[in-house]
Design a protein around this nucleic acid. Structure first.
Length: 1046
RNA sequence: GCCGCCGUGGCGGAACUGGUAUACGCGACGGACUUAAAAUCCGUUGGCCGCAAGGCCGUGUCGGUUCGAUUCCGACCGGCGGCACCA
């Protein structure tokens, strides 16, 4: 029970309030901007201002960072130590739904309460730099960052299915889904297809940097591993399996299938060495090819299975799927290594979102495939022989037969490790590691050399296009093209309508053998897309290229009803980076006519100028629209320009896959930063001009999300309906808000220049402070916050918003505080009733006691239970220290010098090594040694107070003042220890016989081995243990022990 | 299942680089002060045997390396955290 401390002399609450007030008035924690001393940036993860206020876990991290901040200040550093609030989020919004109180009101109230609580612990924060993410002055720059992402093609809208929490009525990022349930409310998550904004964290430009950047960081290894696993890089190969053309009763004509974008089934595998053991294939039920290949006979079963798996929530699909399920499609594919005809199944153990959404199944060497094959009686062929001898032999571990079992016993288990290849044709006998490489090489070399992808984009040139493209497709098919990716027909202006989908399909298929064809305005699209893709291709063919600069304004007028949403990419035609485009293709071909009103000489001049190396072919007498073809000319005439069969088609291609998915950046909720995009019917997605930022979050009457995927903002007509900033036409604001994590991934930049209204922060100030030297917070942010913040920082670095000098990693050193558990050893929670309220602790014991106890409980990074009884020990220590102040006298510190300097050394080292718990122990030990005496030497007492001041600032300051000092103790320099004074004159030498302690005595510290031996052998006890025998060997550890071996 | 971390007194924990295991604190027990209690102060406190000197055992379990292991290696058991059909 909490015991009364009323009659203790030290009145903590009075003293603490007194100094908190005085420090604030004097502004002694204000950051000194102009200082030539080295900088140190100590950052805490800022809290969400919850209604429950501060948790005892918060002060643990804050105290540690405060100790470090004060320590570095006293060591002469120039320290930035700020605090703020991450104040957008669901709880305030849910509270608003329940009570009608505006989230801003709730948030302000909670912030005030938490700020009071934080201040009551006496931390040395520079509150003048406080950052609040829901403050428009702040989120203006969150929006600005979003606009930069958008302008760099890293923020995009998509209709893909997302994780949807039915209770919170909002989309969740993958990282927010835990065991198939919503991180916040535990509701099972379902898939929902809604329009959403995503941020391309998986962009090639960033993903490897996010991975490798971890290598040099001073972070806990566990967090780095967590991030690496989350990114989930795996190396392997994409292998193409041809469809078997003899399939019976196809529902679709073979030509239809083959002319689709899937002529083959592509799989991703990390084990190409097991290809000879691939006895069947599995597509995920969502795979687009399923419809095309399923046979009439299997159609019903496949449809039923697809429906079933679609209806399952993620939770059911993973949790309940202990038993594998699946259905045969009726189709077969050809294994490229041995031309074996293997069945194609669908099963929901194959994920549509990873790899290509299809696998080759090698039941002998993959647990899941094995299980599936057993259940559906599919053949199992062993192709890897497990090593029969262990890499290292340990006789104690029994015989190697334990390993041999796996070789023989394919009935009940499979071998997923490496080994020697068997049943694999010419690869028999080589190791599986080698086989991985060799099989991929071999497959590539034996394949007929043809192109594998042709991307065709036409313009909006109108009527006859429907004829041109199917025909082109067919002709190219006949000509032996491996894969033709067609345009998608649709209403109005087909390409434009399907533009987004269209691009997505190509991206992975395009490689250095691809040919890209554009017609009319599609030429600009092709070039722009190529530039965005940043992949090398073989050839770019431009047929009747119209000058985009000339045409877009006209077209907008001409086709006001068109889906101009989709034209956005082309509106950026002004942004062509010609040198880059020219570097991306080996060959450029331009085909035009001399009789084309849409391709006037200016257009040709435009392309000639920018693509000087292009081969130009003029078709005399043709026009832009030709009767039969819809193109500039008839196909037979342009086909010769398609380069034929000049390079490799990749049947197998080494590649890399990641688990990480793009970051869901929109929520269908209210209390968040509005996404600064305007949707115009003509111009599409238009970024809000920077001068119009911030887009303020308006008031609403109802906070409930509509549940249909729209936020409550959609109901405010006067806010939603705006004029397009580009064309002035009618437009609508984006009504989704940003996710919880939007504001928190750059707040540490803002602290450097918290009130700048011209830019997110002055680069000069960023240069001064970044990167963060020490970042302290909970391990629960290991993935979400720390990954996103690193990504945004790298992006800001790339666009030069973060100066080059700062580097592209924001947090040099990271420390995670361990969880503080309840007294019952369980996680603190309201329902368990084991929550400790910091306010009460401070009231009973004082802030300094609280701070020191939190440090004393155990290692900073370990989880440890709170103990109300334990805290009294710290309080007693502080009381004794307080009392000892009365006995301070100006006496010479003679013998005490050594222990004083030892203490300085311990405290200094332990702070540097984050061992705050042992600091407290050292303080207590020193206190027991010195302060129970009648006379306390001033030198010892004062130095002790300076060392203690980062831990117990109020008491240290109070006692410092009582000693007669006029200036704050925090102006003191951190004491240095003198190594000479620490050396002990005498030590206890331990004498061992056969490694067991048998005697010990005090000897001069520098005792030599011979002397030590003499003394030890003289000991009666040792004589007894030696039993008259001569030691075989003597081990002498200077300053510690001597050991005789007999 | 996979990845990471961790097992030391009644409890939180300490132990440098392989060198006296259990520092410091809590609790418990005994004592002082007090009419009494609280508070405070002093002492004892890993287990077993012994009057004692002293001895034996002891850092999750079993084994290994070593003159010597809480520390290094191997296997296992138990706990915590994360990921989870990632091909």
């Amino acid at each position: 029970m909490i015991q009364s401390v009323m009659n203790i002399k030290y009145d903590s609450s009075r003293v603490e309030k007194k100094w908190q007030k005085q420090w604030e008035q004097e502004g002694i924690w204000d950051t000194k901007e102009n200082s030539s001393s080295p900088k140190f940036y100590v950052l805490d993860m800022f809290p969400y201002p919850s209604a429950q206020g501060l948790h005892v876990g918060h002060p643990e991290g804050y105290t540690a960072s405060d100790i470090v901040a004060r320590f570095y200040r006293m060591k002469g550093y120039h320290v930035l130590h700020p605090m703020g609030f991450d104040s957008f989020g669901l709880p305030a919004e849910n509270y608003a739904i329940k009570t009608g109180t505006h989230p801003a009101t709730t948030t302000a109230k909670n912030i005030n309460n938490m700020r009071r609580q934080i201040k009551s612990l006496g931390f040395s924060y520079d509150w003048k730099r406080e950052v609040i993410t829901s403050d428009p002055e702040y989120y203006k720059w969150t929006q600005w960052i979003f606009l930069q992402l958008f302008k760099h093609g890293l923020a995009y809208e998509s209709y893909a299915p997302i994780n949807w929490c039915p209770k919170d009525k909002t989309g969740l990022a993958n990282e927010e889904v835990i065991n198939g349930k919503c991180e916040r409310c535990g509701t099972p998550v379902v898939k929902k297809k809604i329009k959403q904004w995503l941020v391309k964290i998986t962009d090639e430009k960033y993903i490897e940097r996010l991975l490798h950047g971890l290598d040099d960081l001073d972070w806990p290894e566990s967090i780095k591993t967590l991030q690496r696993n989350w990114i989930g890089r795996s190396e392997g190969a994409i292998v193409n399996f041809e469809l078997w053309t003899g399939n019976k009763e196809p529902r679709r004509k073979l030509s239809e299938v083959l002319s689709s974008k899937f002529k083959v089934i592509s799989v991703f595998t990390t084990r190409p060495d097991t290809l000879f053991g691939a006895t069947y294939m599995v597509l995920s039920p969502e795979h687009e090819l399923v419809d095309l290949i399923t046979t009439e006979k299997q159609f019903k079963a496949v449809e039923k299975y697809k429906k079933e798996s679609a209806a399952k929530s993620d939770l059911e699909r993973t949790d309940l799927a202990k038993e594998k399920t699946g259905v045969f499609t009726g189709a077969y594919a050809i294994n490229p290594v041995n031309n074996a005809k293997i069945p194609v199944w669908i099963a929901d153990y194959v994920l549509s979102t990873y790899g290509t959404g299809a696998i080759m199944a090698v039941p002998a060497h993959d647990e899941r495939d094995f299980e599936f094959a057993k259940k559906f009686k599919l053949p199992i062929i062993q192709v890897i022989k497990p090593p029969s001898v262990m890499p290292k032999t340990y006789p104690s571990l029994g015989s190697a037969s334990a390993w041999g079992v796996k070789e023989a016993d394919l009935e009940s288990q499979c071998w997923t490790g490496d080994g020697t290849m068997v049943n694999s044709g010419q690869f028999n006998g080589i190791s599986s590691e080698q086989g991985r490489k060799k099989i991929v090489e071999w497959l590539n070399s034996k394949t007929e050399q043809v192109h594998n992808a042709c991307l065709i984009v036409h313009g909006i040139s109108g009527h006859k296009r429907e004829n041109w493209f199917p025909w082109l497709k067919e002709e190219l098919n006949k000509a032996g093209w491996e894969t033709i990716v067609p345009t998608m027909p649709g209403a109005g202006h087909p390409v434009l309508n399907s533009w987004d989908e269209y691009l997505g399909q190509f991206d992975q298929r395009i490689n250095e053998n691809s040919v890209l064809v554009g017609h009319s305005l599609g030429c600009a699209s092709i070039l722009f897309h190529l530039q965005q893709l940043e992949k090398k291709v073989d050839t770019v063919i431009l047929v009747a290229p119209t000058n985009p600069l000339q045409y877009w304004p006209q077209l907008k007028q001409k086709y006001p009803q068109a889906d101009w949403d989709a034209v956005k990419n082309m509106s950026s035609a002004q942004n062509f980076n010609w040198p880059k485009i020219r570097s991306l293709a080996k060959r450029f071909i331009i085909i035009h006519s001399d009789n084309d009103p849409y391709v006037p000489p200016e257009s040709m001049a435009y392309y000639k100028e920018n693509l000087p190396e292009a081969e130009i072919h003029c078709m005399p007498g043709k026009s832009h629209f030709s009767e039969s073809t819809g193109g500039v000319t008839s196909l037979p005439e342009i086909l010769p320009f398609f380069p034929k069969s000049s390079s490799n088609s990749s049947v197998a291609q080494a590649t890399i896959n990641y688990k990480l998915r793009d970051w869901l950046f929109s929520r269908q909720r209210y209390w968040g930063e509005p996404i600064p995009i305007i949707h115009c019917e003509i111009c599409g997605q238009v970024p809000v001009p920077e001068k119009d930022l911030p887009v303020l979050l308006p008031d609403v009457k109802k906070y409930e999300p509509t549940g249909t995927g729209e936020s409550p903002l959609a109901n405010i007509k006067e806010w939603v309906n705006v004029k397009c900033p580009q064309c002035g036409g009618p437009a609508r604001r984006e009504t989704n808000t940003m996710p919880q994590w939007a504001g928190s991934n750059w707040y540490f930049l803002r602290y450097c220049d918290a009130h700048n209204d011209k830019q997110l922060a002055d680069p000069e100030k960023l240069k001064k402070w970044l990167p963060v030297n020490l970042y302290i917070g909970g391990a629960e942010h290991a993935v979400l916050h720390l990954l996103y913040a690193r990504f945004i920082y790298k992006f800001l670095f790339d666009i030069k918003a973060v100066p080059e000098k700062c580097g592209d990693e924001p947090f040099k050193k990271l420390k995670n505080q361990g969880l503080i558990l309840g007294e019952d050893g369980q996680k603190m929670s309201k329902s368990r009733g084991n929550v400790v309220n910091p306010d009460e602790v401070i009231e009973k014991y004082g802030a300094d006691t609280m701070r020191m106890y939190e440090m004393f409980m155990g290692p900073f990074e370990d989880a440890k239970p709170w103990n109300m009884q334990g805290i009294i020990g710290v309080r007693r220590f502080l009381d004794r220290l307080y009392k000892a102040g009365e006995n301070v006298a100006d006496v010479e510190l003679n013998k005490g010098k050594r222990s004083l300097h030892t203490l300085i050394k311990f405290i200094t080292n332990d702070i540097e090594n984050f061992k705050f718990n042992t600091c407290v122990s050292h303080f207590m030990e020193a206190s027991n040694e010195w302060f129970s005496e009648e006379i306390v030497p001033r030198e010892a007492y004062e130095t002790f107070l300076v060392l203690l001041s980062p831990f117990a600032p109020h008491l240290a300051e109070e006692l410092w003042e009582k000693l007669g000092h006029k200036k704050s103790i925090f102006n003191e320099k951190w004491p240095e220890f003198d190594p000479k004074l620490i050396v002990k004159a005498e030590i206890t030498l331990v004498v061992q016989v056969n490694g067991r302690v048998r005697d010990q005595f005090t000897v001069p510290a520098g005792i030599s081995e011979t002397e030590a031996q003499e003394r030890a052998l003289a000991s009666e006890k040792i004589k007894k243990w030696l039993g008259g025998k001569q030691p075989k060997k003597t081990i002498f550890v200077p300053g510690r022990l001597i050991n005789f071996v007999v």
